[in-house]
């Protein structure tokens, strides 16, 4: 205890040791080479519980460099526990700069949203994935699902969509909506709302997916075809909102419902806090912020 001085290095750069980072980078390269394919990797224990983004953190730790600027979002928000903790983690272990502005970031680690602002070619989006296998809830055997991916037997995925329509009259899957990547592998885009699915298609940014507990990494390289599965007579549709954001009046963005009191009052606000703040700075005002209802 007495020996601890500030000069002593406490962590390797970005926490993981170099061998581990090499191993993860190899898995990432393979994943980029085979878009949508789940590459197994030797996931490490991280100083956070499974389900808090251990996969995403390992991917970020393996690709981050001293020049990078990191943004972390949790359900679109920069200031919730998970986002703040992971941002602090990398501030401490890699001493990298962090930001909340989408446009400034080179690496964006995300838990279940894609930022509203269009991503650019020099950016990498890292997803935290709880269950990478899109067929899991229909076929519990891993040996069987791997065979189904290998032989491109994806009829089962449509059984799930069929069930949705039979039960609800429309495709009721709203998040983790299955996509086909580059015409080959069916992939679970992690529990992002299906609102974000079209943003994955032909995105100029590199998209990496890390599942720590399930020990899988997969990727969508820039400008890759990503098609949401559907039926001819029940085509894929994103969620629609009937009112603009209550704070910044934005339309065509993903909104969160916020309960205001116990009298049934509620408002809909941007899930992407950075996008909302930027619009407010530009002078946009929603009804809650003193704007005029449209």
């Amino acid at each position: 205890m007495t020996m601890q001085t500030p000069e002593l290095a406490t962590y390797n750069f970005a926490y993981l040791d170099e061998q581990t980072k090499r191993m993860i980078r190899r898995a990432i390269l393979k994943a980029i080479a085979i878009p949508g394919y789940q590459v197994p990797f030797a996931s490490r224990e991280m100083p956070m519980p499974y389900g808090w983004g251990t996969g995403g953190v390992q991917v970020t730790a393996s690709i981050i460099g001293p020049q990078d600027i990191l943004k972390v979002i949790d359900q679109g928000s920069d200031d919730t526990t998970n986002a703040v903790s992971i941002r602090k983690f990398f501030e401490k272990t890699a001493k990298v700069r962090t930001t909340t502005h989408t446009a400034d970031a080179t690496i964006i680690q995300t838990r279940h949203r894609i930022p509203e602002e269009a991503l650019k070619a020099n950016q990498t989006l890292v997803y935290q994935v709880p269950i990478p296998e899109p067929l899991r809830f229909l076929e519990p055997r891993e040996t069987e699902t791997r065979k189904m991916h290998a032989l491109e037997e994806y009829g089962l995925m449509h059984v799930k969509l069929y069930e949705d329509i039979a039960t609800h009259g429309h495709i009721a899957t709203t998040y983790a909506y299955p996509v086909k990547v580059e015409g080959r592998y069916v992939m679970d885009p992690s529990p992002t709302p299906k609102f974000d699915n079209p943003k994955m298609h032909l995105s100029p940014a590199l998209q990496l997916f890390g599942a720590g507990r399930e020990k899988r990494i997969y990727a969508i390289p820039p400008f890759t075809n990503v098609v949401s599965l559907d039926f001819e007579d029940h085509p894929f549709e994103v969620q629609k909102f009937h009112q603009p954001c209550a704070i910044c009046a934005a339309e065509d963005v993903y909104l969160d419902e916020v309960i205001l009191d116990d009298k049934g009052n509620r408002m809909f606000v941007c899930s992407d806090t950075d996008h909302c703040e930027e619009r407010q700075a530009q002078g946009f005002r929603g009804v809650q912020a003193g704007g005029v209802a449209q």
Partner: peptide, 8 residues
């Protein structure tokens, strides 16, 4: 669906 029928 397994043989490619895609019309609900």
């Amino acid at each position: 669906m397994a043989v490619g029928e895609r019309n609900y």
